[in-house]
């Protein structure tokens, strides 16, 4: 039994873009998918917790109720556009499905709206492309279609799980532009999962850094980059290629992320931390407030070099 997520707590305000940053195995995807009960429930299991959304606790909802949230009030964009779309149905059909299911549109109305959505996400000749199959689109185009599907019913929240990781860099830039535009025009809140701090810097209002199934740092984007508190965040920033002089060896973080078989009573990053001391191995640090909304789960105080006191 693997404890993928070990106690996270965060909030999302209306219209803001929250970036969740972490490497593979940090538990970020699992956490976000669990919000809408999207994990296959055997074998996965939500041991405890609540998800407050529009006055309901999503964890407690029955299957028929959570289905009404999915796709209509919360949209989800998955990572791999090559496999996220059903190959035997046209993109039009797949966009129209949630429209007819959640909004009760007729076929004609749904088709009009679907064309609108395709134009919204920047697919040219939308009225013809609507009858094409996924394999007739390139990777970037397919991801746009997936975004169109997620936005179809005007959700309040869009959760995007590494939507640009599988695409090449130029296409990635286009998708990011698209998201920024959509956010401006539609005003929904977005949770953007990524392993790339650079991407997060470009679009986020706030950033949450995850490691070992826990949130290790939480700050507004400028605060995080100006004054990173947690050693993991600092190491991540240091490892960005842009931060080094030419010919200097790239800095990586030695070691591997942990695979936790039970809830840790020590700091999950302690094995790889440069500043580890005794307390780190005996007590798992909670999120400690540093300044205003900026919080870090670490016993080490970078300013003094000593132990942080819990305020």
């Amino acid at each position: 039994m693997v404890h993928a997520v070990n106690g996270i707590s965060f909030h999302l305000d209306e219209g803001e873009l929250l970036a969740v940053v972490g490497e593979s195995g940090s538990g970020k995807s699992v956490a976000m998918m669990s919000l809408m009960q999207l994990l296959p429930m055997p074998p996965a299991e939500i041991a405890s917790g609540r998800v407050n959304f529009q006055g309901q606790d999503l964890v407690k909802l029955k299957a028929s109720q959570i289905r009404q949230v999915r796709g209509s009030r919360i949209g989800f964009v998955f990572q791999d556009p090559m496999t996220s779309l059903n190959p035997v149905f046209t993109v039009g059909f797949q966009i129209m499905e949630p429209l007819r299911e959640h909004m009760g549109l007729s076929k004609r109305q749904a088709r009009e709206r679907a064309i609108e959505l395709l134009e919204l996400v920047g697919i040219p000749a939308a009225d013809q492309r609507i009858d094409d199959y996924p394999h007739q689109f390139s990777g970037g185009m397919r991801q746009r279609v997936v975004i169109a599907i997620a936005l179809a019913c005007d959700p309040k929240v869009l959760i995007a799980d590494e939507p640009t990781t599988a695409l090449d860099v130029t296409v990635q830039a286009q998708i990011l532009e698209l998201i920024k535009e959509l956010r401006q025009n539609l005003g929904m809140a977005i949770i953007w999962i990524t392993h790339d701090l650079g991407v997060a810097a470009g679009i986020a209002d706030r950033i949450v850094v995850m490691y070992g199934g826990q949130i290790v740092e939480h700050a507004a984007v400028e605060d995080l980059f100006d004054d990173p508190q947690h050693p993991y965040t600092r190491a991540l920033l240091e490892s960005l290629p842009g931060r080094h002089a030419a010919h200097e060896k790239l800095r990586s973080i030695a070691g591997q992320p942990p695979l936790l078989l039970k809830q840790p009573d020590f700091c999950p990053f302690s094995a790889r931390c440069k500043h580890v001391f005794d307390k780190c191995l005996r007590q798992n640090p909670p999120l400690i407030a540093v300044e205003g909304d900026h919080r870090a789960a670490c016993w080490w105080n970078p300013e003094t070099g000593g132990v942080r006191d819990v305020a």
């Binding site: 039994m1 693997v2 404890h3 993928a4 997520v5 070990n6 106690g7 996270i8 707590s9 965060f10 909030h11 999302l12 305000d13 209306e14 538990g27 699992v30 956490a31 669990s34 919000l35 994990l39 296959p40 074998p43 996965a44 299991e45 939500i46 041991a47 405890s48 917790g49 609540r50 998800v51 407050n52 959304f53 529009q54 964890v59 309040k156 929240v157 809140a189 949770i191 199934g213 695979l259 078989l261 809830q263």
Partner: peptide
């Protein structure tokens, strides 16, 4: 702060690979 999503401490336990890793 309306329409917020807050996630209180939870543990999510995803599929087990079957044999404990790094143990034996």
């Amino acid at each position: 702060m309306i329409d917020q999503v807050s996630v209180a401490p939870e543990k999510v336990i995803p599929p087990a690979p079957g044999s404990p890793v790094a143990a034996e």
